[in-house]
Design a protein around this nucleic acid. Sequence first.
RNA 1: GGCGAGUUGGCGGAGUGGUUACGCAGCGGAUUGCAAAUCCGUGUACAGGAGUUCGAUUCUCCUACUCGCCUCCA
Length: 481
Amino acid sequence: MTTIKLHNTKTRKREDFVPIDSDNVRMYVCGPTVYDRAHLGNARPVIVFDVLYRLLRHVYGPDHVTYVRNFTDVDDKINARAAESGRSIGEITAETTQWFLDDMAAVGALEPDHMPRATAYIPQMIEMIEGLIAKGHAYAAEGHVLFAVESYKEYGALSGRSIDDMIAGARVEVAPYKRNPMDFVLWKPSDGDTPGWDSPWGRGRPGWHIECSAMSYELLGAHFDIHGGGNDLMFPHHENEIAQSCCAHPGAGFANYWLHNEMLQVEGKKMSKSLGNFFTVRDLLDHGVPGEVIRYVMLSTHYRKPMDWTEKKADEAKRKLKSWYDLVKGVEASKASRIIIDNLAEDLNTAFTLRQLDQLAGDIVHNDKFDGQFEAGVPNAPQMARSSSELRSEFKASLQLLGLIGDEVPSWSEETAFDLSRFQRSLEAARSVAMQTKDFSGVDQIKNMLIGAGVQVQMSKEGVEVIAGPNFDPTKLEALE
RNA sequence: GGCGAGUUGGCGGAGUGGUUACGCAGCGGAUUGCAAAUCCGUGUACAGGAGUUCGAUUCUCCUACUCGCCUCCA
């Protein structure tokens, strides 16, 4: 069996992944707060952990992996959005949740086995909070319930901070009811305009971190294998999750492996609303960047390195994917290549995996030249180790494992339906005349106009081929008529 | 201020204690009326300094620089 190696943030080392129960490998990834379209940065953890999910399923079997990714549908950002738009909270979260699912499906992400919504787990959160109070890890004050960070001596271990360090440069909300400035909210009171639930501390709503602790416990238990998310969540979110979960279920262990993806940048700069280089996955899709291209670009950088989104990368990815898809049209997938699995098992080395795929593609092209010739008795033909069709099936399965293709080649990669045949005929006619007269000026004129319209013109001894290129513009051809 | 990641050829981006992935671009060639496409060939790069070592781009330390998180945001 393949040994997967993962970089564990908890130990800051690359470790062999050993599941608690190989019949049920359990992974929790922090999902979105549903108040708006997912931006490109949101897609990175989704794609990264989707690759891990696919790899785990491949290694342990599809029925032996449980992947949970939540929707946080109670949050002050949502409340603010509702207030400013006049729409109901339920309407906003339902719409945004569906957007997220649609957009993530477009970038090839499988749906997790469970996608719990925070509002469906309020009783479990209240129960957990009550338990924390009972054990002396939390206290109620002025309608709030706060987690007492000093009650948990491991607090800060994941992100490598001490409570004292953090207080020094603290940007924490100072509140008179906090025993320690780092104490964070488990429950807070709601007024008449904010959503709230009845609780032992009055009508209120949960703080940001408790939902993940409650839902992971409910769906995966007190001890599970992998917990993932963006590295911006490391502190405070994951730190607080650990504090809550480990104090609520002492000795259980919570998550064994913590994985964090690095942040995304755009053209070398941080993507942020204030810098104006902020865009959503939907923006890209609507501007003709296919989901597979987004995915390819994401996978071309290792997940623990900052990834720079550039248009150039997207263009290159598109070209590369097109050439790959050409090789697997109508091909039935077999088993993914060993070398692809092995590279993914090395802490998800997707960048190297893409290079290996390209190698496979090259092998297929090379193989095609001699395929079957030896068997057919062609003189001097080399015997190929494997047939081209075998290689293609393996290649397709490898692409599928990475989520870069489904059953069919994506339609965007097919050529334009625009009929170019009459241009081809006139070019052919002009060329055959020119071959006699040796005056190619007329041929070149037609050719250049076609090229100007984004058409790829290929002339050889066998004939003339015209193919719509990536920047094909039919309107420019009309001037030719 | 605290925490963390990184610095590899024109660009992107792997990897390794000793034999210089790979992609794109470029260059040379084959091919072509010319091109395109394709194919063949071609690149001695690892921030700076010190140390460990027979030998370091790869390990250790220091310096410089870049980036991110601790705020909206993953």
